[in-house]
């Protein structure tokens, strides 16, 4: 019963999303002023050919700082989860 309900909800959701999506236009973004600015001025301001790297590391550098912190925290979390549980209560791994 719950399975059929889930399938019905999913079909309704997919139909709703499809109805929204058919109204979008593909290949012609309307508000591209910021990206045009980056493409026009990125080479002269940052002296970089790769505009995506320019945005990732310079225009949105704080974004990448948070991203690196998230990756670091995830690795620390995995290391914390897989420490050895046998032995003493505060047993160090290795």
């Amino acid at each position: 019963m719950r399975r059929y309900l889930s399938v019905a909800v999913m079909l309704i959701l997919a139909a709703f999303l499809m109805f929204i999506v058919t109204g979008l236009t593909f290949g012609n973004p309307q508000y591209a002023d910021m990206d045009d600015y980056f493409i026009q001025n990125g080479q002269e301001q940052i002296a970089t050919n790769n505009i995506v790297t320019t945005i990732v590391f310079d225009y949105r550098g704080f974004d990448t700082l948070g991203e690196s912190t998230v990756l670091f925290t995830a690795v620390i979390g995995v290391a914390m989860l897989f420490r050895k549980f046998t032995g003493g209560e505060y047993d160090e791994d290795e």
């Binding site: 910021m34 990206d35 980056f38 493409i39 995506v52 945005i55 990732v56 974004d63 990448t64």
Partner: peptide, 11 residues
């Protein structure tokens, strides 16, 4: 193409 969506997608 627009570069900002690609940078956000990388994140």
């Amino acid at each position: 193409v627009m570069p900002t969506p690609q940078a956000l997608c990388l994140t």
